[in-house]
Amino acid sequence: MNIKILGHHVEITPGMRSHLEDKLKKISGHFDQVQNMTVTLSINNEKEKDLRNHAEITLHLKGKDLFAEAHNGDMYHAMDLVVDKLDRQVLKHKEKVQDHHHQTLKNT
């Protein structure tokens, strides 16, 4: 799995990188078909102070792309929120893929 972390008007510190990578391991543990992830962290000074920090993740799976974003006053909390949103999407996608293969009824 390839993780690309970008910062827009924010410097990505080693602490932020390690926090994010630890959280993203949970997603790759649920679903092993993750090809790569693009994480963008940004600060928008024009928004309200409580929603200034913005985190978004684009997850590339085989045949599908998933996207999640979150806003919060704290960047670490925004990262946690976006990973939780994406985790729910990955689990839902995994259920759809697995439920697609039903057993056929045999005529006796």
Rank of each mutant, 00 (worst) to 15 (best):
I5F: 10
L6R: 11
L6D: 07
L6I: 15
L6T: 10
G7L: 05
H8S: 10
H9G: 14
I12F: 08
T13K: 04
G15E: 13
G15R: 13
M16R: 02
R17P: 08
R17C: 05
R17Y: 03
S18M: 13
H19W: 01
L20C: 10
K23S: 05
K23N: 09
K26Q: 10
K26W: 02
K26T: 11
I27F: 06
I27M: 05
V34K: 00
Q35F: 02
N36M: 12
M37Q: 12
T38C: 14
L41D: 00
N44R: 15
N45F: 09
N45W: 03
N45T: 11
N45R: 15
N45D: 13
K47M: 13
K47N: 15
L51N: 14
R52T: 05
A55C: 10
T58Q: 13
L59R: 03
H60R: 10
H60V: 03
L61Y: 01
G63L: 06
G63H: 01
G63E: 03
F67T: 15
A68T: 03
E69Y: 11
A70E: 07
A70K: 07
H71I: 06
H71W: 12
H77C: 09
A78D: 08
M79L: 11
M79D: 01
V83N: 00
K85I: 02
R88E: 09
Q89I: 00
V90K: 00
L91I: 07
L91H: 11
K94R: 06
E95T: 09
V97E: 04
V97Q: 08
V97C: 04
D99I: 09
D99Y: 02
D99M: 01
H100R: 15
H100Y: 03
H100Q: 13
H101P: 07
Q103I: 12
N107E: 14
N107Q: 10
N107P: 02
N107F: 07
N107C: 06
T108G: 02
